[in-house]
Amino acid sequence: MRVFVAGATGVIGRRLLPLLTSRGHEVVGLARSYGAAVEVEMLGAVVAEADALDSDALSRVVKDAAPDAVVHLLTAIPAKINPRRMSRDFAQTNRLRTEGTRNLLYAAEQAGAKRVITEGLACIYEPNKWVPATEIAPLWRDPPRQFAPVLAALRSLEERTRQADGLVLRLGQLYGHGTIYGPSGSFVRQVQAGKMPIVGSGDGTFSFTHVHDAAAAITAALDSHVHGVLNVVDDEPAPVREWLPILAQLLDAPPPKHVPAALGRLTVGGWGVAFMTQLRGADNTLARRTLDWAPRYSSWRQGLAAELAHATHS
């Protein structure tokens, strides 16, 4: 299969391109800069140079690539996110999920691609700390102000993917090399410095996804005929009050402090507090059943331990 990957040099793309080529796929990776083009070639793919926000240029390179499938992994998420300024920090990613998605899916249609897979998020469900969300659970009706533009962009991405008869993979909190939970990631550094407390109840429930498992799910989805949305997460959703102390232990870092939600709001804002207290975990049963896929790391416990085995206290 000939596969066009937009977002080829992101944390998932760097895992995906070699995996696809090892399975015998012909891969074309989108690159916007010379450095990205070099990296795409090093990852074993053919380079297509264009800006995803330039509709005409993108249409030309997708048409030239003549792909059977198009994979949309376009983001521009900063290495460190300020939860009080999330709408600012995600502004470019929101554009890529709205304008970029429109441009890419139009280009895919014009080029005759038969399969479209896009990257969504699994942390968008209406809060409910008791029951992990399946794909039919309602999305967050009244999200915190800083998260509202992010959710609106994701809704747009999902709607356009549905219109293209494609598949959205709702990923959990990504961890592994190059992510905020990687050995040199911003979240890990904050934990090492004792600057990541448990806010309020710590009931915010995270579903994690290792970057390899995300890439493996995309690879499996290319060979399937599944459409709609799937949660691609591990098997063990866990509240912050459970996983954050374990992460600190893995890093030989100070145990996280507990701070009241009101105090947390002053430092991390409404979204930061919601992130720590309201997020809902996701259920991966449908992805396991409909794709030839299972997470390499069924639990964040094993995955984080493997990733952080050589991290040291700084």
Score class of each variant (00 low, 15 high):
311 A>V: 13
253 A>K: 07
65 A>S: 07
203 D>F: 10
62 V>H: 05
134 T>R: 14
95 R>Y: 03
252 D>H: 14
270 G>T: 09
93 T>H: 12
241 R>E: 04
251 L>C: 07
266 L>R: 03
250 L>K: 06
78 P>V: 14
293 W>G: 08
117 I>E: 00
46 V>W: 01
145 R>I: 14
97 R>W: 15
121 L>A: 14
279 L>P: 11
42 M>Y: 01
267 T>Q: 11
275 F>T: 01
307 E>Y: 00
215 A>I: 13
189 R>M: 14
201 S>T: 15
132 P>V: 12
33 S>V: 00
70 V>R: 05
86 M>H: 12
204 G>E: 09
211 V>A: 02
266 L>F: 09
147 F>L: 14
215 A>Q: 10
310 H>M: 09
288 R>D: 10
27 V>I: 05
220 A>K: 08
67 P>H: 04
39 E>M: 07
140 W>F: 14
175 Y>P: 05
119 E>T: 08
203 D>H: 13
308 L>H: 08
166 G>A: 06
169 L>D: 14
103 N>K: 07
77 I>W: 15
81 I>V: 15
42 M>G: 09
132 P>T: 04
60 R>E: 12
67 P>E: 05
26 E>P: 00
247 L>E: 01
148 A>N: 06
244 L>S: 08
201 S>D: 14
65 A>K: 02
92 Q>P: 01
157 L>S: 04
44 G>I: 04
82 N>M: 11
200 G>N: 13
